[in-house]
Amino acid sequence: MKLANLDGRAVVITEEGVIDVAAASDGRFPSFPDACVAHLTQIRDWLAADRPVTDPTATLAALQADATRLGPPVTAPSQIFAIGLNYRDHGTETGLALPDAPLVFTKFPSSLAGPAADIPLPTATCDWEVELVVVLADGGRDIPVDQALDHVAGFCVGQDISERTSQLAGTPPQFSLAKSHPAFTPIGPWITTLDELHDPADLTLTCTLDGDTVQRGRTRDLIFDIPTLISHLSAVCELRPADLIFTGTPSGVGYARTPARYLTPGSTLRSTITGLGELRNRCTTPRPKA
């Protein structure tokens, strides 16, 4: 199942069209996309039993071609966790030692954006990081590794846009604010449930900048896999429905290149994960301050 935010409402996307979850269920399920995340199992059962009519004006193919009506599939999570240095090749390119335990920072929810949103660049040193994003359906504390995937609603594509100057300026460096400027957290294009994926533990991530492939990796190369991350985080924090986990980025980021390469106004960033879809985000000049 693919759960999306279409014009601010929760919809299920199919090849034939979309199903407005609240309208088609006569209010049994909420219209707010975030609120539907915790009900994905019930929504799947309802779809199989009732076979609601689809709206053919917005098909899967149409939304893949033009995602401007899609917002982030989760709009206001209580927590966004992000994992640093979770691919060995990314650790190698940065020259940083790999962590013995997951290296956790945050991105703030006000930075969330949709799969076709413009990204205003506040400086000339903004960088890209394509990532697999885990969306939680069910929370809790002290979740065992062997039960962790039972708490997952599905996956989506994410970009951890990073303003490198402020990120690396301090001692220790400041990650969270530097990664939380407006639209620095595009996600989408929808939440794909794990049953739609041939092998959820081995997905290909690709990032292109103006058609040039700058990142390519596979999630099988994660140092700390998804069950380990969920268990580790839940040992400290109470996880909640619709929380997001950015699982790390493979090699190919801009600041680790010689010379460094950064995003520029007018450039287009395309982020793809096998089976999940893609983000297409255009970079723009900074928004005027109020």
Rank of each mutant, 00 (worst) to 15 (best):
P99W: 00
H232P: 15
A169M: 14
L149T: 10
P122C: 01
F184Q: 03
P186I: 00
R88Q: 09
I143L: 02
N86Y: 00
Q174W: 08
A62H: 14
A49I: 04
N5W: 05
V21R: 09
T123W: 14
A22P: 08
S234V: 11
C237V: 04
D243G: 02
L269V: 09
I226R: 12
L244W: 02
T272I: 06
G275S: 01
A23D: 04
L3C: 07
W128G: 05
D195W: 11
A124Y: 10
G95W: 01
L276P: 03
I161L: 11
T68V: 15
I273R: 12
D118L: 08
L47G: 00
H181Y: 15
T193H: 03
F175I: 14
A148H: 06
A61W: 10
F224K: 04
A97V: 13
P99R: 06
F184E: 07
S25P: 03
G277H: 08
H39E: 15
A65L: 05
P109G: 04
V12M: 06
L96H: 08
T165C: 12
A137L: 05
G8V: 03
D160K: 01
L209Q: 03
A256P: 01
W46P: 01
R69L: 14
I273K: 07
P189R: 00
T268Q: 13
G17R: 11
R44C: 08
A148P: 08
I191D: 04
T54Y: 05
G27V: 01
P72V: 01
D89N: 10
R9H: 14
F32G: 07
H151L: 02
S251F: 11
T284H: 13
R282C: 12
A116N: 05
A116Q: 05
E163H: 04
A35V: 10
A61N: 15
A49C: 13
G252N: 10
D142P: 13
P144I: 12
F184M: 06
P109M: 08
F224R: 10
R216I: 15
M1W: 11
A35T: 09
A49E: 07
L136W: 01
E196R: 08
K179M: 06
H39L: 14
R280A: 08
L136F: 12
G188Q: 02
D199H: 03
S234Q: 02
Q174M: 12
D100F: 14
T249L: 00
P52H: 00
G140D: 01
L276R: 00
N281Q: 02
I187G: 01
T125D: 08
V37H: 02
W190I: 06
H90G: 02
